[in-house]
Design a protein around this nucleic acid. Structure first.
Lengths: 322, 322
DNA sequence: TTGAAAGCGTTACCAC
DNA sequence: GTGGTAACGCTTTCAA
């Protein structure tokens, strides 16, 4: 195994000079550089990362914490991996499965300098517990943390929902059902607010009996549609918490011979792969952009320079269900 | 920032003794241990991982290389993360996007001791290039590599396919179409062999005109079903390369008012989340078991002791499409 | 049971 | 431009 010291010995130069070559220092004569590089190549030398990390006090690794992995999380991760890779950082994933202890392990890894920074996608520990680790390195979150030390890149769902609402009303749909996700989450509150305000703006009645919550997956969507079929008074549009739900609603509607979009409009959320294949109108969530911003928020601490966050916005992807 | 040296100074003992406490060495008196532990707690001490890694020459990190992330890969990864975590190893993901250069970076990381071992899920570089890194640490692959130095945990798809075939025949389906994946892959060959042999064993005719290949996704399944509708001579069962394809076939069949499973049986592969929600009969692929075996193959090099691989087998999950 | 000191493989500061 | 050398924070002999 060849080391920097060995290269120094073989080349006749000092370790310092060899190190300079490694780090592209301008204070090395071209001949020296060539000579040393040649020996490195010959001896198949590569610097030991641990030694570098120890010496520099930085590992060039960033940890990503999540309870589980799903399509959305993956899209965020991929975006984050991409930009951090461009800046020379590797990423390591901590899947906690919702276990507080496992999550703490990840936080401890910031303290013990295994990672230089942490990205939280979904967490289970109390925000004050988490924020107590901020002194060891930058921590940025996707989900809102409501803590001054932990910035979040989450977007206000109001805007995305509003886009969908306006589209529906413009198309003439007014009897709108809402399939919400977590009952009292901030996102649900924002979405509900968007629905109510835009209905009011258009002098349309808010129909609370068509509020559904805890609707997350395909089956939930199917069941929702089924229970709707049992009633005489039915909505002419359903705004879904995500694309999975929309897919469930759509497939059940087809099974029930309902003409989509003539008799029922369906809108999903997130613009996932599934919505594309099934042709579901949906709201595009700029996830890669949020991931990028997450890294940019860490940049000052990591790279020593501020970087401008990019402005993000939702957009509507019109397909065959509206 | 407290270091081991500081703890030693404060406690009045040497660094060696403090290190012994850290590593649960039996050669420390209980009182000394207590005293030192108390000071560690008080000073909020945690050992620096880089220093440990450098000193030991091991990082306790394993790299996982993949071109991209999908549900199957994730299941494998989760299984691997789980077992390696139990043995004190963390995992780091290298997503290459099919870029040979990026993949090489990961291999270099084995050389520069950022990771102790590598797990290859999908790779793009030549097996000889990859195997040239074997001298730096254990490399295990999911996909078959056909190289003596790189063991694989892939399973013989013949067995899984045979299970599905026998189930179909037992149920009375004989006019079977096959939706294969990559045209000339080893998996496709095994599956095709299984189909042909089992048909032969039952004195049934092999129908090559119903061989389809390069069928991977939902839309591919839908299209396959559509093209089948145009013909007069139709199969009474379709064996799909994976659950996505089966989902596509199923949804298109429903759209075309075909009675599943009376007029058409559908079997998927992998027992994914989707097959469960849609009620598709499928072949369960013991992915977590394979992931576990992947770690066990590394165990000798990593832990210094041999571990017995567990025997794995496919099984059939019967649902509503057969 | 404990301590002293030599690694581990780099970087970075200070001379020259 | 180049070299000497002290960090970085731990583990691991070898003695005592």
């Amino acid at each position: 195994m060849s080391t920097l010291a060995r290269i120094a010995r073989l080349s006749g130069f000092s370790k310092a000079t060899v190190s300079r070559v490694l780090n592209h220092s301008p204070h090395v004569s071209p001949e020296t550089r060539e000579k040393i590089l040649a020996i490195m190549k010959e001896k198949d030398y590569v610097p030991n990362r641990n030694a570098i990390s120890l010496s520099k006090g930085q590992t060039q690794q960033i940890g990503m914490i999540t309870m589980d992995l799903n399509e959305l999380i993956l899209r965020f991760m991929n975006g984050f991996v991409e930009i951090s890779g461009r800046h020379g950082f590797q990423t390591i994933i901590y899947t906690t499965g919702g276990d507080k202890e496992k999550e703490l392990q990840a936080l401890e890894d910031l303290k013990r300098k295994r990672v230089d920074a942490l990205l939280i996608l979904t967490s289970v520990n109390d925000k004050n517990v988490i924020s107590s680790y901020c002194k060891y390195g930058p921590i940025v979150s996707w989900q809102r943390m409501d803590h001054p030390d932990i910035p979040s890149v989450a977007m206000n769902q109001y805007d995305g929902y509003a886009l969908a609402m306006e589209h529906l009303i413009e198309k003439g749909y007014t009897r709108i059902a809402n399939a919400f996700g977590r009952p009292s989450s901030i996102n649900t509150r924002s979405r509900r607010l968007a629905y109510e305000q835009i209905m009011a703006n258009n002098n349309l009645p808010v129909i609370e009996k068509w509020y559904y919550s805890s609707i997350y997956r395909i089956v939930d969507g199917e069941q929702l549609m089924q229970s709707l079929m049992g009633e005489t008074d039915r909505p002419d549009a359903i705004l879904c918490s995500n694309d999975l739900v929309a897919a469930g609603v759509l497939s059940e509607a087809r099974r029930q011979r309902i003409d989509v979009p003539r008799d029922l409009a369906i809108i999903g959320f997130d613009n996932s792969e599934l919505s594309r294949t099934l042709g579901i109108t949906t709201v595009r969530n700029p996830i890669a952009g949020q991931a990028e911003n997450a890294f940019l928020l860490m940049a000052p601490a990591l790279l020593g320079r501020n970087m401008e966050l990019q402005p993000l916005s939702f957009s509507l992807v019109k397909r065959e269900t509206t």
